[in-house]
Design a protein around this nucleic acid. Sequence first.
DNA 1: ATTAGAATCATCCTTTCGGGTGAAGGCAAT
DNA 2: ATTGCCTTCACCCGAAAGGATGATTCTAAT
Lengths: 166, 166
Amino acid sequence: MIEVKSVGGKNPATVVLCFCENQIDEMKRTIFFYAIALAFLVFVLKSIEYRFYVRDLSIEFYIGFIAILFTVLGIWAGLKLTRKKTVVLSPDFVLDELKLQKLGISKREHEVLQLMATGLSNQEIADKLFVSLNTIKTHSSNLFLKLEVSRRTQAVQRGKELRLIP
Amino acid sequence: MIEVKSVGGKNPATVVLCFCENQIDEMKRTIFFYAIALAFLVFVLKSIEYRFYVRDLSIEFYIGFIAILFTVLGIWAGLKLTRKKTVVLSPDFVLDELKLQKLGISKREHEVLQLMATGLSNQEIADKLFVSLNTIKTHSSNLFLKLEVSRRTQAVQRGKELRLIP
DNA sequence: ATTAGAATCATCCTTTCGGGTGAAGGCAAT
DNA sequence: ATTGCCTTCACCCGAAAGGATGATTCTAAT
């Protein structure tokens, strides 16, 4: 029982490590699983404990065993909690919709910007969106005005800077 | 002594987590510090142990205390070991010179690619490198052949994929 | 000394881009 | 209903980019 409580007590410490809201669910699951694992381990340890007492083995070895176990468990928990962070840093992308609004960039224009960033030509973008080349040219022109650039390569760069595209 | 040994035993496990050679030194230091901390804790625990025996307190509480301590220590170690990984993933950029060679991309071509990625036009690149526009066009053409692309936006994208540019 | 690759520049030609302007239909807010 | 914005499309024009080919110079390796 003491051990299970101890897991709850660690929550404040782990929360410090979590910045993104979308990670909290994952973290909760991790903590829950960790609690379950701890409870199970305590159970196992109890049985081992009695065996050790019966066989009159050294208490030091028992302590060492616990230390190793919980160290490994702690490392695993630490990795589990930070792996999200690691993954989050690069491939995660949260669109800055506020900036989109502030610059007055419409959905369609943003769409064009995204395809532009993949290296497509205006004609290819037009084909992909099932509209005419002229439409894409209009969109891109307006886009360039709003992003204050004059070339598509600059637009892509600027879009990444402003977190409009991944 | 048992605990100290256990730290050494964890090395193989932690090595698995380490991919970059430049992290190994940092990792060694971390492990060394971890070993020191463990030894110190064992010392502390021993004294506490005797006090507990003298006061005839529950062995369960003692075990719980050890479990908490080593869990926290394990989490800390896990964080310490992965923090490097986290930092390495995004802001660092190591040029893949092998890939440059494999693709037969020359210094000048690589230079052009870099400037291309900043959104400059061929003319601007020519001005910046003090060569003629035609030269840049030749370089970029050769670059496109080697990167197997047909547009500068694609070249920039591909260059980033292949770690030729940041 | 010869060869190979690089860097440089040129010319010709086609395609793509970017800028400007205009316009028609749809949709939502006033 | 009027206004404003988005989306769509069109035409024109000049600039930029891309493709092909050839030539010169220089350096480094053979």
